[in-house]
Design a binder for these strands. Structure first.
Lengths: 343, 343
DNA sequence: TTGAAAGCGCTAACAT
DNA sequence: ATGTTAGCGCTTTCAA
């Protein structure tokens, strides 16, 4: 059913004024007499008048909404980031419209088309693991549509980007394993398309190189869906367990990969870190409660959301085309628990 | 910066047609010649024309957006529910606008006012733990605004509601503890304002009554913020530990309370279930990985989101005022792990 | 088959 | 100090 609300016209009619007078009175214009203002304000309050944001949007050619595309809301990193996004957006008077790509390229494109037309003023996106073709994003960007990438960014499109020190985070995690005596360290990562995968692998490789180690190809396993399906993690772990010599540690580059890996190892009764150590990226706030408590690389998700939103609003509210784009780099922290301790 | 897109007017001008002809051609009206249609469609595709959803909204008096208010996105139950909401909404062509109340009444009211005007066609809400006064909701509802409550509902407002068998879930969890030999079972719950708290406590009390037990007042602890702050859980647990005889088990009625309680007990080196058993509501998908693996009451969060959205869209799209409201009751499941096992 | 015009709710330039 | 009018992009009635 339709929900009819009061308009400026209703007020004007009731008070025998013109709509423009009412409009001005409501906006406290100086060219309206105090008397009239009072009258209008009082009546408006009485009938609980609310300006229609859609009419405003049409007039101002802006919706005061921003779109967010992430792979999955039910992922601690993203839900924390959205939390940050929402807090800044709300503070600045913007709505947040959320969509999920579920790591599917098609869904990402579809969602983007859906959101982009003109119902959002700008977009925050962390691309799906399946995203190789960038046409959907580039087309928008080329037409001047404000876009900010966060976390899973795209290098080829010039706009603001918010990332973490992926290389450093991975390096630190791997180094932690090395310092604890592990030498045959495997890596389970998401799709190679992703900037974050490539950088994290690079950090892992570099740490090993520091100890004059070079991982064989068989030590690096890819999960195209980023661990969304446990089966892919199961397969990766299974292959690693068959290697001889068997890896003595695993480094995982994403939330779902880390918990998925823990799940698989425990199901197979592999003792952690006794048989195999495990260190990975995760933003779950339950890691200390796990068995064993996990050593993880933690990303400042909330802050990333805040920063990305702030940059996006800068783009949206800028009077002139922005040419200088920023790349904000936030730091990770290694939270040490038991899963990566000395063997 | 502004992002200018093509309009029907541009097409009309370029093709020497009127805007109404273009409009009709785009909507494949039968009163337009095939020739003209082809021409228009071709040109529209060429300049990548997209109808302006805001103009449509103004015309149709609907925004094809629904609002969602939850306490916190970064809570497994809510993020899963939102996932369900988003899936149904998108399928039916609606945007989802998300806001968080962070268990604050003021934020809930503020957000509601912000969303309600006319930028959303309806609202899905799970009220905050602090919500006692219902005026903000009632005012909207009385004006015919479509609202559906889910999980944390409000009995006094007549509309569709989606709940789970709170009583049953709590009863089952408590009974599980009883069957495992625990007799002195405490309960940690959220604000008593909440329907779910009251019902879950009732289920807990009834299960005890079944064994001719009656919990003393001191065994039931309230956390007004629903466990959002660990301190309140710490205090509750602390008080319970001081009781003589000391409780041999704890039943928690919410996600944050369950994991918070586990955190506190572990910090105090209380062995679970050796010293104290723990069973509670939780929708985390990591419970099996915890130490000890938690026995939990799981809610069908995704499904609740789906059902609630479906009901909301029914309200929104109904031609006439809806009088018959549904109360959909979904079932919980007890996932048995070790934390509630025999002592 | 096509076009002109009105209207959705609001603001603002331009009268009065 | 207040009113008239046009216009944001689109659909739709009415006219041609």
């Amino acid at each position: 059913m339709k929900f009819e609300a009061a308009t400026i016209k209703d007020i004007a009619k009731a008070l025998g004024l013109s709509t423009s007078t009412v409009s001005r009175a409501l906006r406290d214009s100086h060219e309206i007499s105090e008397e009239t203002k009072k009258l209008v304000l009082k009546y408006a309050a009485q009938i609980n008048y609310r300006p229609n944001p859609i009419a405003l949007s049409l007039k101002e050619k802006r919706s005061r909404s921003i779109g967010v595309i992430v792979t999955e809301i039910a992922n601690s990193f993203f839900s924390q980031a959205i939390n940050g996004i929402e807090s800044v957006a709300k503070e600045r008077g913007y709505n947040v419209i959320i969509s999920q790509s579920h790591e599917s390229f098609e869904k990402e494109v579809q969602t983007l088309n859906y959101l982009s037309s003109r119902s959002i003023d700008g977009l925050l996106i962390s691309v799906s693991a399946a995203t190789k073709d960038l046409e959907h994003l580039r087309a928008l960007h080329d037409r001047g549509f404000p876009i900010v990438f966060f976390d899973r960014i795209v290098e080829d499109i010039q706009t603001h980007k918010v990332v973490i020190e992926n290389f450093r985070g991975a390096y630190d995690a791997t180094m932690h394993l090395l310092q604890n005596g592990y030498r045959n360290i495997a890596c389970i990562t998401a799709s190679e398309n992703l900037s974050i995968s490539r950088e994290r692998i690079a950090g892992y490789v570099e740490a090993l190189a520091h100890k004059q180690l070079k991982p064989s190809k068989s030590l690096i396993k890819y999960c195209p869906n980023g661990g969304m399906e446990l089966a892919e993690v199961e397969q990766a772990v299974s292959q690693l367990l068959k290697l001889r010599p068997r890896p003595d540690a695993i480094f995982t580059t994403g939330d779902k990969l880390t918990t998925g890996c823990l799940r698989v190892l425990r199901a197979r009764n592999v003792s952690i870190p006794g048989d195999i150590a495990l260190v990975g990226f995760s933003n779950s706030d339950l890691i200390e409660l796990m068995n064993p408590p996990l050593t993880v690389v933690r990303q400042p998700a909330f802050e990333m959301g805040e920063v990305a939103t702030d940059l996006l609003l800068q783009l949206i509210e800028s009077k002139r085309p922005v040419k200088d784009f920023e790349r904000r780099i936030l730091t990770t922290s290694l939270i040490v628990n038991e899963s990566g301790n000395r063997k």
